[in-house]
Computed example of a mutant assay.
Amino acid sequence: MRFVQERIERGLLDARIQFVFSNRAQGQAQGSDGFFDLVSSYNLPLVTRSSAHYRRSRSSSGLTWAELRPEYDRLVLEDLEDFRPDICVLAGYMLIWGAQMCSSYPMLNLHPALPDGPIGTWQNVIWELIRQRATRTGAMIHLATEELDRGPVVSYCSAPITGPDFDQEWLALAELDLEEVRASQGEDLSLFQQIRRAEYRREPYLILETLRAVAEGRVQVKDGQALNASGLPLASTVPPGLCLDEEIDRAMAADGSA
């Protein structure tokens, strides 16, 4: 949020943030409290409804979270009924959106893998890339649907995970049992950390450049589809989505981050 808001304030993105929503409440966790302070510093409207508190309040009902979820989503929609955003961005939001939420707002979700890459958490993605001995990593923005990490792809970026910075790490792993390495070293594995950095440093630029593409009309989101400027589905490209590698490389170079 800081990355995008600062560029809005600098006139680098023709957009504004209408509101920020969190499924945590003030005082629930140190990390989210710090985020709320950041939102407040920008004078942005903050709306919160704790999903954890809601579940506890309904614990006596005997209903599962799946059964309670539609009511929780309905309450969230009521909380947000005064806002009319053109697009919403899910970032660090760990609840899978249900059908009612997906149909109410066009939601952009960040997933730390290429369009044809692994699904799941970023940790799972990296381990799968290592298992496959992949040559590239990346991230994508897709429309949020009820199907985890598999909504229509809007945009993506990629980065190599071979070459001088990686070859020694791949070589060191070649003769080892991956499951034993994962159990003994876990995320401290140097190759794991390097792959994460290669992808993670591009994430905020992917969000920014995707929002810029939407603001400029190069990407349209209509009726659950991601379309190009001509109104053709981006799903028809191979791989699907708008590749933003060039735009991200230029932006990172301008920031001295390349």
Rank of each mutant, 00 (worst) to 15 (best):
L108Q: 00
D177C: 12
Q132R: 15
E180P: 03
W122T: 01
D188K: 13
T145D: 11
A172I: 03
P118C: 11
L176T: 14
Q132K: 12
G186A: 04
P118T: 03
W170Q: 01
L178Y: 13
H111N: 05
V154K: 05
M107L: 15
G186R: 01
D188H: 13
A174V: 14
S155Y: 04
G117W: 10
I141G: 06
G186W: 08
M107Q: 12
R150M: 14
W122V: 07
F166C: 02
A172N: 13
W170V: 02
C157A: 14
G186S: 01
D177S: 14
Q168G: 15
E169P: 04
T162G: 05
L110P: 06
N124F: 11
Q185Y: 08
A174H: 14
L110D: 02
D188I: 00
T162Y: 11
A159P: 03
E175F: 10
A159D: 05
E128M: 00
L173H: 04
A134L: 02
L178M: 15
D116Q: 14
A174P: 04
Y156C: 08
D165W: 07
P160Y: 10
A159G: 01
E128I: 01
N109C: 01
L176Q: 15
D177F: 06
A172P: 07
E147T: 15
V125M: 01
G163E: 08
L171C: 11
R182H: 10
W127T: 01
C157G: 06
H111S: 03
C157H: 00
G138W: 06
I141L: 15
L171R: 15
P152E: 06
E146H: 06
M140V: 07
S190A: 11
D116A: 14
A139I: 09
D165T: 00
L173K: 05
A174Q: 15
E175V: 04
W122N: 09
L176I: 09
I126D: 09
P118W: 03
P112R: 08
D116M: 12
A144D: 08
W122A: 02
A159Q: 06
R150S: 15
D165G: 08
A113F: 10
P160V: 11
P160N: 08
G120H: 05
I119F: 07
A113I: 01
L143K: 11
T135E: 14
D177L: 09
